[in-house]
Nucleic acid binder design. Structure first.
Lengths: 220, 220
DNA sequence: CAAAAACCGTAACATTCGTTACGGGTATGA
DNA sequence: TCATACCCGTAACGAATGTTACGGTTTTTG
Protein backbone atom coordinates (compact mmCIF):
# COMPACT_ATOMS: atom_id res chain seq x y z
CA UNK A 1 0.00 0.00 0.00
CA UNK A 2 2.78 2.37 0.86
CA UNK A 3 3.97 1.54 -2.59
CA UNK A 4 0.77 2.94 -4.06
CA UNK A 5 1.12 6.16 -2.13
CA UNK A 6 4.63 6.44 -3.41
CA UNK A 7 3.26 6.04 -6.86
CA UNK A 8 0.70 8.70 -6.18
CA UNK A 9 3.52 11.06 -5.36
CA UNK A 10 5.35 9.97 -8.44
CA UNK A 11 2.37 10.75 -10.57
CA UNK A 12 1.97 14.16 -9.03
CA UNK A 13 5.64 14.93 -8.98
CA UNK A 14 6.97 13.21 -12.02
CA UNK A 15 10.25 13.28 -10.19
CA UNK A 16 12.75 10.56 -9.38
CA UNK A 17 12.08 8.03 -6.60
CA UNK A 18 14.95 9.47 -4.61
CA UNK A 19 13.33 12.85 -4.35
CA UNK A 20 10.12 11.21 -3.30
CA UNK A 21 11.92 9.44 -0.49
CA UNK A 22 13.06 12.80 0.76
CA UNK A 23 9.58 14.18 0.76
CA UNK A 24 8.14 11.17 2.56
CA UNK A 25 4.54 11.72 1.86
CA UNK A 26 2.75 10.21 4.80
CA UNK A 27 -0.80 11.08 3.97
CA UNK A 28 -3.79 9.89 5.93
CA UNK A 29 -5.77 7.55 3.78
CA UNK A 30 -8.12 4.61 3.71
CA UNK A 31 -8.24 1.79 1.24
CA UNK A 32 -11.32 0.29 -0.34
CA UNK A 33 -11.64 -2.77 -2.51
CA UNK A 34 -14.32 -3.37 -5.10
CA UNK A 35 -15.37 -6.45 -7.02
CA UNK A 36 -16.07 -6.44 -10.72
CA UNK A 37 -19.40 -4.77 -11.28
CA UNK A 38 -19.44 -2.89 -7.99
CA UNK A 39 -20.52 0.70 -7.95
CA UNK A 40 -17.62 2.88 -6.82
CA UNK A 41 -19.28 6.28 -6.96
CA UNK A 42 -22.66 7.54 -8.04
CA UNK A 43 -23.31 10.46 -10.31
CA UNK A 44 -24.24 13.41 -8.09
CA UNK A 45 -22.39 12.15 -5.03
CA UNK A 46 -20.62 14.92 -3.21
CA UNK A 47 -16.90 14.34 -3.42
CA UNK A 48 -15.18 14.79 -0.10
CA UNK A 49 -12.18 12.63 -0.89
CA UNK A 50 -9.76 12.09 -3.67
CA UNK A 51 -10.37 8.72 -5.30
CA UNK A 52 -7.02 7.31 -6.29
CA UNK A 53 -7.57 4.23 -8.44
CA UNK A 54 -4.53 2.09 -7.67
CA UNK A 55 -5.54 -1.23 -9.19
CA UNK A 56 -8.02 -2.36 -11.79
CA UNK A 57 -10.11 -0.63 -14.42
CA UNK A 58 -13.33 1.34 -14.20
CA UNK A 59 -15.85 2.73 -16.62
CA UNK A 60 -17.64 6.02 -16.27
CA UNK A 61 -21.18 6.59 -17.46
CA UNK A 62 -23.66 9.39 -17.55
CA UNK A 63 -27.02 8.47 -16.16
CA UNK A 64 -30.05 10.50 -17.04
CA UNK A 65 -32.70 10.96 -14.43
CA UNK A 66 -34.78 8.39 -16.21
CA UNK A 67 -32.29 5.63 -15.58
CA UNK A 68 -30.72 5.19 -18.98
CA UNK A 69 -26.97 4.93 -19.09
CA UNK A 70 -24.54 6.37 -21.57
CA UNK A 71 -21.02 5.08 -21.61
CA UNK A 72 -18.39 7.78 -21.54
CA UNK A 73 -14.92 6.38 -21.04
CA UNK A 74 -12.73 3.79 -19.40
CA UNK A 75 -9.99 4.57 -16.91
CA UNK A 76 -7.16 2.22 -16.05
CA UNK A 77 -5.16 2.30 -12.82
CA UNK A 78 -3.22 4.10 -11.66
CA UNK A 79 -5.15 7.32 -12.02
CA UNK A 80 -6.94 9.75 -9.74
CA UNK A 81 -10.67 9.75 -10.37
CA UNK A 82 -11.55 13.19 -9.08
CA UNK A 83 -8.38 15.14 -8.45
CA UNK A 84 -9.73 18.45 -9.63
CA UNK A 85 -13.36 18.00 -8.70
CA UNK A 86 -12.92 17.91 -4.94
CA UNK A 87 -12.04 21.59 -5.04
CA UNK A 88 -14.69 22.66 -7.53
CA UNK A 89 -17.70 24.67 -6.42
CA UNK A 90 -19.93 21.94 -7.75
CA UNK A 91 -18.04 19.13 -6.07
CA UNK A 92 -20.10 16.24 -7.36
CA UNK A 93 -19.17 13.28 -9.46
CA UNK A 94 -20.27 14.16 -12.99
CA UNK A 95 -20.46 10.49 -13.89
CA UNK A 96 -21.26 7.08 -12.54
CA UNK A 97 -18.16 5.01 -11.77
CA UNK A 98 -18.36 1.22 -11.99
CA UNK A 99 -15.63 -1.36 -11.53
CA UNK A 100 -14.89 -3.32 -14.70
CA UNK A 101 -12.39 -5.51 -12.85
CA UNK A 102 -11.55 -6.02 -9.21
CA UNK A 103 -10.33 -2.62 -8.10
CA UNK A 104 -8.49 -0.99 -5.27
CA UNK A 105 -9.10 2.64 -4.44
CA UNK A 106 -7.15 4.82 -2.03
CA UNK A 107 -9.30 7.48 -0.46
CA UNK A 108 -7.66 10.68 0.75
CA UNK A 109 -9.89 13.26 2.36
CA UNK A 110 -9.91 16.81 1.12
CA UNK A 111 -8.76 18.07 4.50
CA UNK A 112 -5.88 15.60 4.49
CA UNK A 113 -4.83 16.88 1.13
CA UNK A 114 -5.04 20.46 2.29
CA UNK A 115 -2.98 19.65 5.37
CA UNK A 116 -0.40 17.85 3.33
CA UNK A 117 -0.21 20.77 0.93
CA UNK A 118 0.39 23.21 3.74
CA UNK A 119 2.98 20.93 5.28
CA UNK A 120 4.83 19.75 2.23
CA UNK A 121 5.64 22.19 -0.60
CA UNK A 122 6.66 19.29 -2.83
CA UNK A 123 3.25 17.74 -2.55
CA UNK A 124 1.57 21.06 -3.23
CA UNK A 125 3.64 21.57 -6.37
CA UNK A 126 3.02 18.02 -7.47
CA UNK A 127 -0.70 18.20 -7.05
CA UNK A 128 -0.91 21.58 -8.73
CA UNK A 129 1.28 20.36 -11.56
CA UNK A 130 -1.01 17.41 -12.17
CA UNK A 131 -4.09 19.60 -12.44
CA UNK A 132 -2.27 22.27 -14.42
CA UNK A 133 -1.07 19.68 -16.91
CA UNK A 134 -4.64 18.51 -17.24
CA UNK A 135 -5.79 22.04 -18.00
CA UNK A 136 -3.09 22.36 -20.64
CA UNK A 137 -4.06 19.07 -22.23
CA UNK A 138 -7.75 19.90 -22.27
CA UNK A 139 -7.11 23.36 -23.68
CA UNK A 140 -5.03 21.92 -26.46
CA UNK A 141 -7.65 19.39 -27.43
CA UNK A 142 -10.35 22.04 -27.26
CA UNK A 143 -8.42 24.32 -29.60
CA UNK A 144 -8.20 21.51 -32.14
CA UNK A 145 -11.88 20.66 -31.83
CA UNK A 146 -12.97 24.27 -32.13
CA UNK A 147 -11.31 24.54 -35.52
CA UNK A 148 -14.10 24.05 -38.03
CA UNK A 149 -13.32 21.63 -40.79
CA UNK A 150 -10.61 19.05 -41.16
CA UNK A 151 -8.27 21.30 -43.11
CA UNK A 152 -8.49 23.91 -40.38
CA UNK A 153 -7.60 21.36 -37.72
CA UNK A 154 -4.73 20.14 -39.85
CA UNK A 155 -3.51 23.68 -40.49
CA UNK A 156 -3.60 24.43 -36.77
CA UNK A 157 -1.71 21.26 -36.00
CA UNK A 158 0.90 21.99 -38.64
CA UNK A 159 1.44 25.57 -37.46
CA UNK A 160 1.96 24.28 -33.96
CA UNK A 161 4.59 21.85 -35.17
CA UNK A 162 6.21 24.30 -37.52
CA UNK A 163 9.97 24.39 -37.26
CA UNK A 164 11.42 26.76 -39.79
CA UNK A 165 9.04 25.73 -42.52
CA UNK A 166 9.18 22.01 -41.86
CA UNK A 167 7.00 19.88 -39.66
CA UNK A 168 6.65 16.34 -38.41
CA UNK A 169 3.39 14.75 -37.42
CA UNK A 170 4.97 12.62 -34.73
CA UNK A 171 2.24 10.05 -35.09
CA UNK A 172 0.41 8.04 -37.71
CA UNK A 173 -2.32 9.58 -39.81
CA UNK A 174 -4.76 7.08 -38.37
CA UNK A 175 -4.09 8.17 -34.82
CA UNK A 176 -4.09 11.82 -35.82
CA UNK A 177 -7.55 11.33 -37.33
CA UNK A 178 -8.71 9.85 -34.05
CA UNK A 179 -7.12 12.75 -32.19
CA UNK A 180 -9.03 15.17 -34.39
CA UNK A 181 -12.24 13.20 -34.03
CA UNK A 182 -12.59 12.58 -37.77
CA UNK A 183 -12.39 9.55 -40.04
CA UNK A 184 -9.08 8.43 -41.42
CA UNK A 185 -10.03 8.60 -45.12
CA UNK A 186 -11.37 12.10 -44.57
CA UNK A 187 -8.09 13.30 -43.07
CA UNK A 188 -6.14 11.54 -45.79
CA UNK A 189 -8.25 13.28 -48.41
CA UNK A 190 -7.80 16.66 -46.73
CA UNK A 191 -4.02 16.27 -46.72
CA UNK A 192 -4.10 15.19 -50.36
CA UNK A 193 -6.04 18.30 -51.31
CA UNK A 194 -3.75 20.60 -49.35
CA UNK A 195 -0.80 18.99 -51.08
CA UNK A 196 -2.47 19.20 -54.49
CA UNK A 197 -3.25 22.88 -53.89
CA UNK A 198 0.43 23.51 -53.29
CA UNK A 199 -0.02 24.70 -49.71
CA UNK A 200 2.14 21.99 -48.22
CA UNK A 201 4.38 19.11 -49.16
CA UNK A 202 3.90 15.90 -47.28
CA UNK A 203 5.34 12.42 -47.31
CA UNK A 204 5.99 9.72 -44.75
CA UNK A 205 5.07 11.71 -41.67
CA UNK A 206 7.14 14.75 -42.59
CA UNK A 207 6.33 17.80 -44.60
CA UNK A 208 7.09 21.38 -45.55
CA UNK A 209 4.98 24.49 -45.58
CA UNK A 210 4.98 26.06 -49.02
CA UNK A 211 2.45 28.87 -48.60
CA UNK A 212 2.02 30.23 -45.09
CA UNK A 213 -0.68 32.70 -46.01
CA UNK A 214 -2.96 30.09 -47.55
CA UNK A 215 -2.33 27.79 -44.61
CA UNK A 216 -3.26 30.51 -42.17
CA UNK A 217 -6.45 31.29 -44.08
CA UNK A 218 -7.65 27.77 -43.53
CA UNK A 219 -8.04 28.58 -39.83
CA UNK A 220 -11.19 29.99 -38.29
CA UNK B 1 -4.62 48.45 -5.70
CA UNK B 2 -5.58 46.78 -2.51
CA UNK B 3 -9.02 46.79 -4.01
CA UNK B 4 -7.76 44.68 -6.88
CA UNK B 5 -6.18 42.17 -4.57
CA UNK B 6 -9.45 41.97 -2.75
CA UNK B 7 -11.08 41.27 -6.04
CA UNK B 8 -8.52 38.65 -6.78
CA UNK B 9 -9.50 36.93 -3.58
CA UNK B 10 -13.13 37.36 -4.50
CA UNK B 11 -12.57 35.69 -7.81
CA UNK B 12 -10.75 32.81 -6.22
CA UNK B 13 -13.05 32.55 -3.30
CA UNK B 14 -16.40 33.47 -4.72
CA UNK B 15 -17.26 34.27 -1.16
CA UNK B 16 -18.71 37.36 0.49
CA UNK B 17 -16.51 40.44 1.10
CA UNK B 18 -16.83 39.93 4.82
CA UNK B 19 -15.15 36.57 4.69
CA UNK B 20 -12.43 38.07 2.56
CA UNK B 21 -11.79 40.71 5.18
CA UNK B 22 -11.28 37.98 7.71
CA UNK B 23 -8.78 36.25 5.52
CA UNK B 24 -6.85 39.44 4.79
CA UNK B 25 -4.85 38.25 1.88
CA UNK B 26 -1.70 40.31 1.95
CA UNK B 27 0.14 38.86 -0.95
CA UNK B 28 3.45 40.13 -2.22
CA UNK B 29 2.93 41.57 -5.65
CA UNK B 30 4.08 44.09 -8.18
CA UNK B 31 2.00 46.13 -10.57
CA UNK B 32 2.73 46.77 -14.22
CA UNK B 33 0.97 49.06 -16.62
CA UNK B 34 0.82 48.62 -20.38
CA UNK B 35 -0.26 50.92 -23.16
CA UNK B 36 -2.49 49.84 -25.99
CA UNK B 37 -0.48 47.69 -28.34
CA UNK B 38 2.19 46.79 -25.81
CA UNK B 39 3.41 43.25 -25.62
CA UNK B 40 2.57 41.80 -22.21
CA UNK B 41 3.98 38.33 -22.62
CA UNK B 42 5.63 36.44 -25.44
CA UNK B 43 4.77 32.97 -26.57
CA UNK B 44 7.34 30.63 -25.09
CA UNK B 45 8.19 32.85 -22.13
CA UNK B 46 8.69 30.90 -18.94
CA UNK B 47 5.96 31.82 -16.50
CA UNK B 48 7.29 32.49 -13.03
CA UNK B 49 4.43 34.69 -11.89
CA UNK B 50 0.68 34.75 -12.03
CA UNK B 51 -0.51 37.47 -14.38
CA UNK B 52 -3.65 38.96 -12.93
CA UNK B 53 -5.24 41.26 -15.49
CA UNK B 54 -6.98 43.87 -13.36
CA UNK B 55 -7.83 46.52 -15.95
CA UNK B 56 -8.19 46.58 -19.69
CA UNK B 57 -8.48 43.99 -22.42
CA UNK B 58 -5.91 41.78 -24.11
CA UNK B 59 -5.83 39.50 -27.09
CA UNK B 60 -3.95 36.24 -27.35
CA UNK B 61 -2.38 34.97 -30.53
CA UNK B 62 -0.47 31.98 -31.68
CA UNK B 63 2.69 32.85 -33.51
CA UNK B 64 4.28 30.33 -35.81
CA UNK B 65 8.02 30.26 -36.02
CA UNK B 66 7.78 32.03 -39.33
CA UNK B 67 6.26 35.12 -37.80
CA UNK B 68 2.64 34.81 -38.87
CA UNK B 69 0.05 35.41 -36.20
CA UNK B 70 -3.20 33.61 -35.62
CA UNK B 71 -5.74 35.25 -33.40
CA UNK B 72 -7.10 33.03 -30.68
CA UNK B 73 -9.23 34.94 -28.22
CA UNK B 74 -9.82 38.12 -26.27
CA UNK B 75 -9.73 38.36 -22.50
CA UNK B 76 -11.30 41.16 -20.52
CA UNK B 77 -10.28 42.21 -17.01
CA UNK B 78 -10.52 41.02 -14.37
CA UNK B 79 -9.10 37.63 -15.16
CA UNK B 80 -5.93 35.70 -14.40
CA UNK B 81 -3.88 35.09 -17.51
CA UNK B 82 -1.92 32.04 -16.46
CA UNK B 83 -3.33 30.69 -13.22
CA UNK B 84 -2.89 27.06 -14.09
CA UNK B 85 0.17 27.32 -16.27
CA UNK B 86 2.59 28.48 -13.58
CA UNK B 87 2.36 25.03 -12.04
CA UNK B 88 2.48 23.02 -15.25
CA UNK B 89 5.58 21.05 -16.20
CA UNK B 90 5.79 23.03 -19.40
CA UNK B 91 5.38 26.41 -17.73
CA UNK B 92 5.47 28.57 -20.82
CA UNK B 93 2.95 30.94 -22.26
CA UNK B 94 1.24 29.03 -25.07
CA UNK B 95 0.24 32.28 -26.72
CA UNK B 96 1.32 35.82 -27.37
CA UNK B 97 -0.44 38.36 -25.15
CA UNK B 98 -0.93 41.91 -26.44
CA UNK B 99 -2.76 44.81 -24.83
CA UNK B 100 -5.81 45.93 -26.81
CA UNK B 101 -6.41 48.80 -24.40
CA UNK B 102 -4.38 50.38 -21.63
CA UNK B 103 -3.97 47.56 -19.15
CA UNK B 104 -2.94 47.00 -15.57
CA UNK B 105 -1.47 43.68 -14.54
CA UNK B 106 -0.75 42.47 -11.02
CA UNK B 107 2.17 40.07 -10.90
CA UNK B 108 2.34 37.55 -8.09
CA UNK B 109 5.33 35.25 -8.02
CA UNK B 110 4.85 31.51 -7.87
CA UNK B 111 6.69 31.34 -4.56
CA UNK B 112 4.45 34.05 -3.11
CA UNK B 113 1.43 32.06 -4.14
CA UNK B 114 2.85 28.92 -2.59
CA UNK B 115 3.62 30.75 0.64
CA UNK B 116 0.17 32.24 0.74
CA UNK B 117 -1.36 28.85 0.14
CA UNK B 118 0.57 27.32 3.01
CA UNK B 119 -0.34 30.24 5.27
CA UNK B 120 -3.95 30.76 4.35
CA UNK B 121 -6.26 27.78 3.80
CA UNK B 122 -8.94 30.03 2.36
CA UNK B 123 -6.60 31.20 -0.36
CA UNK B 124 -5.57 27.64 -1.11
CA UNK B 125 -9.19 26.55 -1.46
CA UNK B 126 -10.01 29.57 -3.56
CA UNK B 127 -7.15 29.07 -5.94
CA UNK B 128 -7.82 25.37 -6.24
CA UNK B 129 -11.50 26.03 -6.78
CA UNK B 130 -10.74 28.40 -9.61
CA UNK B 131 -8.60 25.88 -11.44
CA UNK B 132 -10.94 23.01 -10.66
CA UNK B 133 -13.86 24.95 -12.06
CA UNK B 134 -11.83 25.54 -15.18
CA UNK B 135 -11.16 21.82 -15.54
CA UNK B 136 -14.87 21.14 -15.16
CA UNK B 137 -15.75 23.73 -17.75
CA UNK B 138 -13.20 22.46 -20.25
CA UNK B 139 -14.25 18.86 -19.73
CA UNK B 140 -17.85 19.72 -20.35
CA UNK B 141 -17.08 21.55 -23.54
CA UNK B 142 -14.87 18.73 -24.69
CA UNK B 143 -17.60 16.17 -24.12
CA UNK B 144 -19.96 18.22 -26.26
CA UNK B 145 -17.38 18.59 -29.01
CA UNK B 146 -16.55 14.91 -29.03
CA UNK B 147 -20.12 14.02 -29.83
CA UNK B 148 -20.21 13.51 -33.57
CA UNK B 149 -23.07 15.21 -35.33
CA UNK B 150 -25.37 17.98 -34.25
CA UNK B 151 -28.16 15.69 -33.11
CA UNK B 152 -25.72 13.81 -30.90
CA UNK B 153 -24.55 17.04 -29.30
CA UNK B 154 -28.13 18.09 -28.77
CA UNK B 155 -29.08 14.72 -27.32
CA UNK B 156 -26.16 14.91 -24.91
CA UNK B 157 -27.11 18.40 -23.87
CA UNK B 158 -30.74 17.43 -23.35
CA UNK B 159 -29.87 14.37 -21.26
CA UNK B 160 -27.69 16.54 -19.09
CA UNK B 161 -30.55 18.95 -18.52
CA UNK B 162 -33.15 16.25 -18.11
CA UNK B 163 -35.38 16.77 -15.10
CA UNK B 164 -38.01 14.08 -14.96
CA UNK B 165 -38.61 14.06 -18.68
CA UNK B 166 -38.56 17.80 -19.15
CA UNK B 167 -35.67 20.07 -20.00
CA UNK B 168 -34.83 23.72 -20.44
CA UNK B 169 -32.10 25.00 -22.69
CA UNK B 170 -31.31 27.91 -20.41
CA UNK B 171 -30.04 29.92 -23.37
CA UNK B 172 -30.99 30.92 -26.89
CA UNK B 173 -30.65 28.54 -29.79
CA UNK B 174 -28.22 30.96 -31.38
CA UNK B 175 -25.87 30.87 -28.41
CA UNK B 176 -26.29 27.13 -28.06
CA UNK B 177 -25.22 26.74 -31.67
CA UNK B 178 -22.14 28.82 -30.93
CA UNK B 179 -21.49 26.70 -27.83
CA UNK B 180 -21.68 23.57 -29.97
CA UNK B 181 -19.50 25.08 -32.65
CA UNK B 182 -22.13 24.71 -35.37
CA UNK B 183 -24.26 27.09 -37.42
CA UNK B 184 -27.56 28.30 -36.10
CA UNK B 185 -29.71 27.12 -39.04
CA UNK B 186 -28.09 23.69 -38.77
CA UNK B 187 -28.99 23.38 -35.10
CA UNK B 188 -32.47 24.68 -35.78
CA UNK B 189 -32.90 22.07 -38.48
CA UNK B 190 -31.63 19.31 -36.22
CA UNK B 191 -34.13 20.24 -33.51
CA UNK B 192 -36.90 20.38 -36.09
CA UNK B 193 -36.07 16.88 -37.27
CA UNK B 194 -35.89 15.48 -33.76
CA UNK B 195 -39.25 17.03 -33.04
CA UNK B 196 -40.68 15.77 -36.31
CA UNK B 197 -39.41 12.28 -35.54
CA UNK B 198 -41.30 12.35 -32.27
CA UNK B 199 -38.21 12.02 -30.10
CA UNK B 200 -38.74 15.29 -28.28
CA UNK B 201 -41.20 18.12 -27.96
CA UNK B 202 -39.74 21.61 -28.03
CA UNK B 203 -41.04 25.13 -27.91
CA UNK B 204 -39.80 28.43 -26.56
CA UNK B 205 -36.69 27.16 -24.85
CA UNK B 206 -38.43 24.31 -23.06
CA UNK B 207 -39.14 20.77 -24.07
CA UNK B 208 -40.02 17.24 -23.14
CA UNK B 209 -38.38 13.94 -23.90
CA UNK B 210 -40.82 11.59 -25.58
CA UNK B 211 -38.60 8.62 -26.47
CA UNK B 212 -35.56 8.13 -24.29
CA UNK B 213 -34.25 5.15 -26.20
CA UNK B 214 -34.16 6.95 -29.52
CA UNK B 215 -32.59 9.96 -27.87
CA UNK B 216 -29.87 7.82 -26.36
CA UNK B 217 -29.17 6.14 -29.68
CA UNK B 218 -28.29 9.49 -31.18
CA UNK B 219 -25.19 9.56 -29.00
CA UNK B 220 -21.84 8.15 -30.04
C1' DC C 1 -44.56 54.95 -30.46
C1' DA C 2 -40.96 53.91 -33.87
C1' DA C 3 -36.60 52.09 -34.92
C1' DA C 4 -33.25 48.88 -34.09
C1' DA C 5 -31.65 44.66 -32.62
C1' DA C 6 -32.02 39.98 -31.46
C1' DC C 7 -34.09 35.62 -32.16
C1' DC C 8 -36.27 32.04 -34.80
C1' DG C 9 -37.92 28.82 -38.56
C1' DT C 10 -37.54 27.55 -43.19
C1' DA C 11 -35.85 26.46 -47.75
C1' DA C 12 -32.60 25.67 -51.68
C1' DC C 13 -28.17 24.88 -52.89
C1' DA C 14 -23.13 24.04 -52.30
C1' DT C 15 -19.68 21.98 -49.68
C1' DT C 16 -17.79 18.92 -46.57
C1' DC C 17 -17.60 14.73 -44.40
C1' DG C 18 -18.67 9.84 -43.38
C1' DT C 19 -19.09 5.31 -45.24
C1' DT C 20 -17.58 1.57 -47.64
C1' DA C 21 -14.69 -0.77 -50.44
C1' DC C 22 -10.44 -1.86 -52.78
C1' DG C 23 -5.39 -2.48 -53.58
C1' DG C 24 -0.83 -1.90 -52.14
C1' DG C 25 2.90 -1.34 -48.91
C1' DT C 26 5.58 -2.58 -44.61
C1' DA C 27 6.69 -4.72 -40.30
C1' DT C 28 6.18 -8.64 -37.23
C1' DG C 29 6.04 -13.18 -35.72
C1' DA C 30 4.92 -18.10 -36.25
C1' DT D 1 8.21 -18.07 -46.06
C1' DC D 2 3.66 -17.31 -45.17
C1' DA D 3 0.17 -15.29 -42.41
C1' DT D 4 -1.24 -11.50 -39.93
C1' DA D 5 -1.76 -7.02 -38.58
C1' DC D 6 -1.22 -2.29 -39.45
C1' DC D 7 -0.88 1.79 -42.20
C1' DC D 8 -1.84 4.36 -46.26
C1' DG D 9 -4.06 6.41 -50.56
C1' DT D 10 -7.96 6.55 -53.46
C1' DA D 11 -12.59 6.55 -55.25
C1' DA D 12 -17.70 6.75 -55.41
C1' DC D 13 -21.76 7.61 -53.17
C1' DG D 14 -24.90 9.23 -49.71
C1' DA D 15 -25.63 11.84 -45.55
C1' DA D 16 -24.77 15.72 -42.74
C1' DT D 17 -23.60 20.32 -42.43
C1' DG D 18 -22.58 25.05 -44.03
C1' DT D 19 -24.17 29.03 -46.66
C1' DT D 20 -27.23 32.32 -47.94
C1' DA D 21 -31.43 34.39 -48.09
C1' DC D 22 -36.07 35.60 -46.65
C1' DG D 23 -40.05 36.67 -43.63
C1' DG D 24 -41.73 36.83 -39.31
C1' DT D 25 -41.97 37.62 -34.10
C1' DT D 26 -40.34 39.45 -29.91
C1' DT D 27 -37.41 42.43 -27.14
C1' DT D 28 -34.79 46.38 -26.43
C1' DT D 29 -33.81 51.16 -27.01
C1' DG D 30 -34.27 55.90 -28.02
Amino acid sequence: MNQDLLFFCTMCQEKSPKEIDKIRCTIDHTVKNYKRGDLIASQGDRISSLYMLTKGKVKTEIISKSGLTVSVEEITAPYPLAAAFIFADNNRFPVEVTAMEDCEVVLISKSSIEKQMAKCPGFLRGFMAFIANRVQFLLERLKIFSQKGIKAKMAYYILQHDKNGSFELGRSIASLAEYFGVERPSLSRAISEMTHDGIIEFEAGKGKILRYNDLKELLG
